[in-house]
Design a binder for these strands. Structure first.
Length: 431
RNA sequence: GGGGGGAUACUCAAGCGGCCAACGAGGGCAGACUGUAAAUCUGCUGAUUUUAUCUUCGAAGGUUCGAAUCCUUCUCCCCCCA
């Protein structure tokens, strides 16, 4: 084998738990592993990225990765880590989501190579849809005792303790359905390993247990730690919601910014997980970062690498240009030096609104420009507040409450850049 | 079925006839400082035509010059007894 997969993941801090013997199992010959992805939306978000990275490393180590779309399990909902039963998705929604996710995944995994270890995409809906209830409880349910299932943390939490909400039979059966996926892949595709977040441990072991009992086979579980941030907020979330991989949902600029804003502590952790930089490269980066922390080399490198991987080199360039203009010491001069085309490209990911030229000719009060006419802020009161707090800028220049926007403020004859505080920008386009 | 407690702004949580758009804490936003960081300090955090007015305290009615606060009914939650 080209590389020791377990060793690689270990130094990257991507192993939370693994079953004894996996390392030897993997070193022996090419193996297959899978990760399950619930198609709850039509795009992956960066929370999914860890699993995807595991699969990538797996493929790079010469093994065969399987991505399993949970078309069937997505209809049930995993009780792990949830205090309430999930809303069920219908078949059409799932189909749509699956198609979109499939496209995204192909960016990370080599599906279409002729290599032996080409990635494979499967959907558990394909083998679950014609599985009758009777067949299922006879062929699968028979092998696992309820006692075993109840011992799982995900189940226990819902049955006992302070906020025991109870759980439906549907949710209870989730681990069996997921376990059956593993069994199915083991039988039909020689998949012997399931990977996932540490919250999946219980579900995965139900699978290895099934493999053992039904097939007398040996299957393994490898989990990675759940990604946390030093400040305790949830990884991959901002006020505005999830950070998606889809450029339509989260623009490359916003995406880049998310990574750039990583704290020092997290950056060191994340760069190991989300980039393919070697151990030596990372160690050098960390060292030079510590010497000059204000330069934030770690964050920059992290943001660059991940943005290129998820989007493209081009998208990164634009994101950097936009960042420099918005956060650098740029002035109105710099803004005016941009061509209309560049301007639009740079600010593509920023909240926008349009005004008519006629409106602008008459003059638009700054308060209206912030709320009533554009909806950037929720009320005139909010606009006034921010103005009083010296938070609002027009084309990078701080302004007061009495400012009237006119054609003189236009950049490239069609844009006005509004800023709130240091991090929020809005773009007015005149049509 | 009987008894008791509760429902207040994004969250927790005071208020229990006028001084309440509603203490305080957390969160959020902004300002200073900085590294687009952390910590810290400061301001703001219902709306509007902003020193005033309007709409809010589970819902609907009522008492009163005046109610988040008192009364009635309803809805929902929790606890104890059966």
């Amino acid at each position: 084998m080209a590389k020791n997969f377990i060793e690689e993941l270990t130094w990257r801090g991507m192993i939370h738990d693994s079953m004894p013997g996996v390392e030897e199992h993997l070193l022996e010959k090419m193996r297959s592993a899978y990760v399950g992805i619930d198609p709850t939306a039509d795009s992956l978000h960066i929370g999914h990225l860890v699993s995807v990275m595991m699969l990538r490393h797996f493929q790079r180590a010469g093994h065969k990765p399987y991505a399993l779309l949970g078309g069937a399990t997505g209809m049930i909902g995993d009780p792990s880590g949830k205090s309430q039963e999930r809303n069920l998705l219908n078949e059409q929604e799932l189909q749509h989501n699956q198609d979109a996710i499939k496209t995204q995944l192909s960016r990370f995994l080599a599906f279409d190579t002729t290599d032996e270890n080409a990635a494979v995409l499967v959907n558990n809906y394909d083998w679950m849809k014609n599985f009758s209830f009777l067949e299922f409880i006879r062929d699968v349910g028979k092998h696992i005792t309820v006692n075993y299932m109840m011992a799982k943390d995900s189940v226990k939490k819902r049955l006992t303790g302070e906020n025991a909400e109870g759980m439906s039979f549907t949710e209870f059966s989730y681990q069996l359905v997921q376990g059956n996926d593993f069994l199915h892949l083991y039988k039909n595709n020689e998949v012997s390993i399931q990977m996932g977040g540490s919250d999946q441990w219980g579900n995965i072991t139900t699978g290895t247990e099934l493999v053992r009992r039904v097939e007398s086979g040996k299957a393994f579980a490898v989990t990675c730690p759940l990604i946390t941030k030093a400040d305790g907020t949830k990884f991959g979330k901002t006020e505005g919601g999830n950070i998606w991989l889809d450029a339509e949902r989260t623009s490359p600029y916003q995406f880049y910014q998310y990574w750039l804003n990583t704290s020092d502590e997290d950056a060191e952790k994340f760069i190991k997980i989300f980039t393919f930089l070697s151990k030596v490269e990372i160690e050098e980066l960390v060292a030079s970062h510590q010497e000059a922390p204000h330069q934030r080399q770690l964050q920059k490198k992290l943001a660059e690498e991940v943005t290129i991987m998820v989007h493209s080199e081009e998208a990164l360039k634009t994101a950097i240009t936009a960042s420099n203009i918005l956060f650098g010491k740029s002035t109105e001069e710099d803004l005016r030096s941009l061509s209309a085309k560049d301007f639009l490209a740079v600010f593509e990911g920023i909240t926008q609104a349009t005004l008519t030229r006629a409106e602008l000719k008459e003059g638009v009060g700054i308060i209206d420009a912030l709320s009533a006419k554009t909806g950037f802020l929720e009320s005139n009161g909010a606009a006034r507040r921010e103005l009083k707090g010296n938070a609002i800028s027009v084309n990078k220049t701080k302004v007061k409450e009495d400012l009237i926007l006119t054609e003189d403020h236009l950049i490239s004859d069609q844009f006005i850049l509004l800023g709130k505080g240091k991090k929020t920008n809005y773009l007015i386009i005149v049509s």
